[in-house]
Amino acid sequence: MAAVNHPPAVVLLTDFGTDDTYVGQMKGVILTIAPETRIIDLTHAVTPQDVTEGAFLLERALPYLPPESIVIAVIDPGVGTRRRAIAVEAGGRRFLAPDNGLLTPILLKNGPVQCVEVTNRRYIAPERSRTFHGRDIFSPAAAHLATGIALNTLGAAIEPADCMKLPMPGCTALGIGVWEGGVIFSDRFGNLVTSIDSSLAAEKDQWRLVLPDGTALPVRETYGNVPEGEPLAYRGSFGTLEVGVRDASALERFGLNRGEKVRLERL
């Protein structure tokens, strides 16, 4: 039996939520142009207008997305201004996003093959809202890419070096066996995702994560290693340390916001 050739999957990452019709409108545009396209909802729950969080989530999800995916990433507080709409090809995938730093990990780590500004009116909506470029620019452009057009038909080439980049969350060594990082975001369970790389807390040693109020949490393997209601730090699925409370919310318990500092210490 001959293999079936499917169009590349279109992956959506936004801060739109699902209470309104925004995501449905984007999907409607994509499927009108490319009806056989598979659509993956990576998330629509990025903290509103938090470009750094969106960039982090995209970077960490990238290894698990299908090869040749077309990714639409829209966290766009500058929509309707002079900021550019860009399309980037890197690592065998294509990405469409506002030029506001959302594609920082792609531009810095994945060796972009080409980058264009999306301006060709043939491949975007003839009438465009000033506030909904996810529907009127990025979705039709992605759908046309899914039908087989080349990236460079979307507009004029630009240098990846000229695209906006953000400082991405990371951690700093404060001494031997001590690193400082910060909270990036909380997930829907109330777990606090930090910027401290899990690999720093080598399993052969004992570690603790110190919160801004001085609370010191043991680094454990998983929630079941502490009693119900007890807090812990653990090596999370994003590849960084996280703060959790067994069967409860670390966000509610500690009230930490993005950017607040945490410290990893070897015992």
Rank of each mutant, 00 (worst) to 15 (best):
M1R: 03
M1D: 07
P8G: 11
P8E: 02
T14N: 11
D15R: 06
F16G: 01
G17M: 13
T21K: 04
G24V: 08
Q25Y: 01
K27N: 08
K27A: 08
G28L: 02
I30G: 05
L31D: 08
T32D: 14
A34F: 10
I40V: 15
T43M: 10
V46E: 10
V46K: 00
P48M: 07
Q49E: 14
T52N: 03
T52L: 15
G54K: 00
A55E: 07
L57E: 11
L58C: 11
L58K: 00
R60V: 15
R60Y: 01
R60D: 03
A61V: 09
P63C: 04
E68M: 09
S69I: 12
V71C: 08
I72H: 08
G78Q: 13
G80W: 08
G80S: 12
T81W: 11
R82A: 15
R82M: 12
R83K: 15
E89C: 03
A90D: 03
G91E: 03
G91L: 11
G91M: 10
R93H: 06
F95W: 01
A97D: 10
P98S: 04
P98V: 03
P98Y: 04
N100C: 06
L102P: 02
L103W: 06
L103Y: 01
T104P: 04
T104Q: 12
P105S: 09
I106T: 00
L107R: 06
L107V: 13
L107F: 09
L108S: 13
L108N: 11
L108C: 12
K109H: 15
N110Y: 15
V113H: 00
Q114D: 10
E117D: 02
E117H: 01
V118Y: 00
V118R: 01
T119L: 13
R122P: 02
Y123R: 01
I124P: 00
R130C: 06
T131V: 12
G134K: 07
I137H: 05
F138T: 07
F138A: 05
A143V: 02
T147I: 12
G148A: 10
G148P: 04
L154V: 00
G155H: 03
I158M: 04
I158R: 00
P160G: 04
D162T: 04
P167Y: 05
M168H: 05
P169W: 12
P169H: 04
G170T: 15
G170F: 02
I176Y: 05
I176T: 15
G177I: 11
W179V: 07
W179I: 00
G182F: 02
F189P: 03
G190T: 12
N191H: 12
L192V: 09
T194Q: 02
S195G: 06
I196F: 08
S198A: 15
L200W: 09
A201K: 02
E203Y: 07
E203D: 14
Q206M: 05
R208P: 02
L217D: 07
R220Q: 14
E221W: 10
Y223D: 00
G224R: 11
V226M: 12
V226W: 14
E228W: 10
G229D: 12
E230I: 06
P231A: 13
R235Q: 10
G236Q: 06
L241G: 06
L241N: 09
E242N: 08
E242V: 06
S249D: 12
A250N: 05
A250C: 09
G255D: 08
G255I: 08
L256I: 09
L256W: 10
N257E: 14
R258L: 04
E260D: 11
K261I: 05
V262M: 03
R263D: 01
L267T: 14
L267K: 09
